[in-house]
């Protein structure tokens, strides 16, 4: 029983962490219409940043600053934000595919750098030796995982509330205005590229937060954690859940992570041994099919964006009748 429970906690922790990343992507893609082809790079920046800043000093590595945990996590988020800021600055005034390509490139280069730069990130071995916060007080094992899960859940809820407020704020309306009609927004005297940059950096910082939590959870990160697969998974979560809708984003994260876990388990359990090698291929085909299928048959996702009519503020009846 404790085994099942323990696994459920483990599953829910990972899904919640991914849900935070999906929320970050939703701000970029769902609310602002920005394509991030390198989710994993910003996620990875948070993970590596947190572990390098918060980990113990290690021989032959610049890292290991042993900062207190909240500082390390914030630092990881800042690394993700700075990366997003540079990429956004270079691409957001150009047509949208530049951002798609550049962010995809960031992900390739990030993984490549982490894999090779032993002095920075331990190379293929990854970053080890990280001490999880409060481990001494709580101890290892199930209890720690449970406490950690609750913490992640609280952070997920905080992120959710923050984004809901942001989307309902004048800034959120501006984001949608720019997404729907850039020229009209521009004529109102708003600089679309600056607003988009803000949204892009904020979304990436949230992905960095997710990455930081992920790194903390495993107390270890390696190039295997920053493969493009993660980007595809996070997209599928958002597309399935419903871009533009934060509830959909969280729902999609749990659904897709569940499907991914179950399909991986089922393939390893029931597929013939000689086909085991191809488990990954089958899972990738499935995730590709989910992305394409949703876009062809139900582009609005399972929980579509609730269209907020801009006059609703002046008409409280309509608001309630939504």
């Amino acid at each position: 029983m404790i085994g099942v429970l323990s696994y459920l906690v483990f599953f829910a922790t990972t899904a919640s962490i991914l849900a935070i990343a999906v929320l970050g992507l939703n701000l970029q893609w769902g609310n602002t219409g920005l394509f991030n082809g390198g989710v994993v790079a910003f996620f990875g920046a948070g993970a590596y940043g947190t572990l390098i800043l918060g980990g113990p000093p290690q021989e032959g590595m610049v890292g290991g600053f042993a900062l207190t945990y909240p500082m390390a996590l914030l630092g990881g988020m800042a690394v993700a934000g700075v990366m997003a800021w540079i990429v956004g600055l270079l691409t957001l005034r150009l047509r949208h595919d530049y951002l798609a390509i550049a962010t995809f490139g960031v992900a390739v280069a990030f993984e490549n750098l982490m894999r090779n730069a032993e002095w920075l990130a331990g190379g293929a071995k990854g970053v080890r030796g990280f001490e999880r916060p409060f481990r001494e007080a709580i101890g290892d094992g199930f209890l720690y995982n449970l406490v950690f899960f609750v913490a992640v859940l609280l952070i997920l809820i905080a992120t959710y509330v923050f984004l809901e407020r942001l989307v309902a704020s004048p800034f959120g309306r501006l984001l949608r205005a720019i997404r729907e009609d850039e020229e009209a927004a521009q004529s109102l005297g708003k600089s679309p590229s600056r607003v988009r940059l803000t949204a892009f950096v904020t979304g990436s910082v949230i992905m960095g937060l997710a990455g930081g939590l992920y790194g903390t959870f495993y107390a270890f990160v390696s190039p295997q954690d920053v493969l493009p697969t993660l980007t595809f998974q996070v997209w599928a979560m958002l597309i399935v859940g419903g871009a533009g809708n934060n509830r959909g984003a969280v729902f999609g994260a749990f659904l897709i992570w569940g499907a991914w876990t179950i399909s991986g388990w089922a393939l390893s359990r029931f597929a013939p041994v000689e086909a085991q090698l191809y488990t990954g291929s089958v899972q990738f085909i499935l995730i590709g099919a989910v992305i394409v299928g949703m876009l062809v048959w139900r582009p609005q996702g399972l929980l579509p964006e609730r269209l907020i009519v801009s006059q609703q503020g002046s008409n409280p009846v309509n608001k309630r009748g939504e």
Binding site: W29, F35, A100, F232, Y278, V282, F284, I291, V292
Partner: peptide, 27 residues
């Protein structure tokens, strides 16, 4: 996808197609 969504949906769809084609070749 072009008929249903915006240009960016096409970028997503192309990633999805890439995954499908690549892994079918692998299979």
């Amino acid at each position: 996808v072009r008929e249903k969504g915006q240009e960016l949906s096409m970028v997503f769809a192309s990633f999805g197609m890439a995954l499908i084609v690549r892994n079918i070749i692998g299979l």
